[in-house]
């Protein structure tokens, strides 16, 4: 399968006062087209830093990040913005919908930024149907439940047909029932549209919905059951549901 995203010896160091804190200490991994991957680890293991770098929101201190073969670590702010706009979709723990706009307008904002005009989009219509939020489009975020808000956020992330969907603790603010609904939808999106999805979580239950589990600790990958890597120690899909 085609490699969509690759990191090579990725490092990220933050300066906190006079102390240098190493959030990532040489992360190398490959994500292929159509994979549903979970990156798991305890708080402070570096998974959010990895997510921000993969999402072109921040630059690594060292190493390479290749998205479709292009090293985004060397890109300037405008180029990174272009990557976020055209290749990446984001889903956040706190939904991060624009509170003053309706669900429809939140999705339209993403399409507008992407350069798409208002009008019928069969892909989007299918996504909305799958997420079961077609009838919620006129509501503002405050008029939606947490699960509904997260589904709108997923639709917004997919509105510009990104190559990679990154979800940072997507069920972190949801109860178990809504978490299950959202996770099933991620899996359905992956199956139906072959959408490449990377989920970051510290919730072990989430990994049962994914093809692959990458575990991190102290800024490094400690295990990876990459089904395409013959050298992988756990070269079996994690999905069991």
């Amino acid at each position: 399968m085609k490699t969509l995203l690759e990191t090579i010896d990725l490092r990220k160091t933050y300066q906190v006062g006079k102390i240098n804190v190493e959030a990532l200490r040489g992360v190398s991994l490959k994500v292929r087209e159509g994979e549903l991957t979970a990156i798991m680890g305890p708080s402070g293991c570096g998974k959010s830093s990895l997510m921000h770098i993969l999402g072109a929101m921040t630059k690594p201190s060292a190493g390479k990040v290749l998205i479709e073969g292009k090293d985004i670590a060397r890109m300037n702010d405008a180029e990174l913005t272009g990557i976020r706009r055209d290749r990446i979709g984001f889903v956040f723990q706190k939904f991060n919908l624009l509170p003053t706009l309706t669900a429809r307008a939140n999705i339209e904002v993403a399409r507008h930024i992407h350069g798409l005009t208002n009008g019928h989009d069969s892909h989007l219509a299918e996504v909305l149907q799958l997420l079961m939020i077609e009838d919620k489009m006129g509501r503002r975020p405050s008029e939606l439940s947490g699960g509904e808000q997260q589904r709108v956020a997923i639709a917004r992330a997919l509105a510009s047909k990104p190559a990679i969907l990154l979800a940072d603790e997507p069920t972190g603010s949801l109860d178990s029932r809504n978490s299950e609904i959202v996770l099933n939808m991620f899996r359905e999106l992956n199956r139906r549209f072959r959408q490449t999805i990377i989920l970051v979580t510290h919730n072990p239950e989430l990994v049962t919905y994914t093809d692959r589990l990458i575990e991190m600790r102290d800024g490094v990958v400690v295990s990876d059951n990459d089904p395409w890597d013959v050298d992988s120690e756990l070269a079996q899909p994690a999905r069991s549901v």
Binding site: T81, G82, R85, N96, R156
Partner: peptide, 15 residues
Amino acid sequence: REIGILRALGASKGF
């Protein structure tokens, strides 16, 4: 935060 959301969605500085 809203500006951060727009930037994360790929809105340029000019936008």
